[in-house]
Amino acid sequence: MSYIEVKDLSFSYTGKRMILKDISLSIEKGEWVAILGHNGSGKSTLAKAMVGLLEPNQGTIAYDGVVLTNDTAYDIRKKVGIVFQNPDNQFVGVTVRDDIAFGMENLMVPQKQMLEMIDFYSEKVGMKDFLDKEPSTLSGGQKQRVAIAGILAMQTQVIIFDEATSMLDPYARRDLIEYIQKLNQEGITVIMITHDINEAMYANRLVILKDGTIFSDGDKWSLFKQPEIFENSHLELPFSLKLAAALDDSLPEEKAVKDFLWQSISNT
């Protein structure tokens, strides 16, 4: 049994059009999984269901053997946190300090301990000098870091990023991804919802959603070797991979370039 087990999950808002259909997924502790899909593929719905914000019509989600229900949601959310797309709409506190504290306050952490945790985690996400700042003075990338600190301070093991970088500019985006990479190396399980393959490249495993079903699920290298999967699910491979796919293996010169391209991707 894996740490996270999603089984035959189906969801629909109206009862008519299914947003998610029979989704089954197993995720191990410490993995970095990218859930990729075009706009409207159901990936954000899946993210919300995974933290119990939406109740599935069918199927179950379990963390460490415990099935997510209304009764278990509180305890499960101590293990799994979510960072949403819009940095502004998830910043609850009046200041950075208050926002990092919010989750811990809900968990009844004593004040003294909260202050220590805030010190520790704000340092970790590089926001220690901003503790008294108000959100309107922060950039989008800084707000997302604060959101991460707030979740880490709750001692979560899994963080779901629901298109958390899509409202940031390319530099802030790369910065955040590199930070997430660090978190993953420290043992945090990362589930990244995105439509940007450049972001998904950092993951080990790709799950591709198309029209509410899992279209493909596997190691990124094996999937990258089948460009048609991405084409068929309205996703676009990065230029380097497309170029590699177009090169001819039978010509030694082209093969060399191809190998080089593959290698340079694996170095990212």
Partner: peptide, 8 residues
């Protein structure tokens, strides 16, 4: 083009 997928 922000927020659109590659095709969009």
């Amino acid at each position: 083009t922000s927020g659109l997928d590659p095709k969009g």
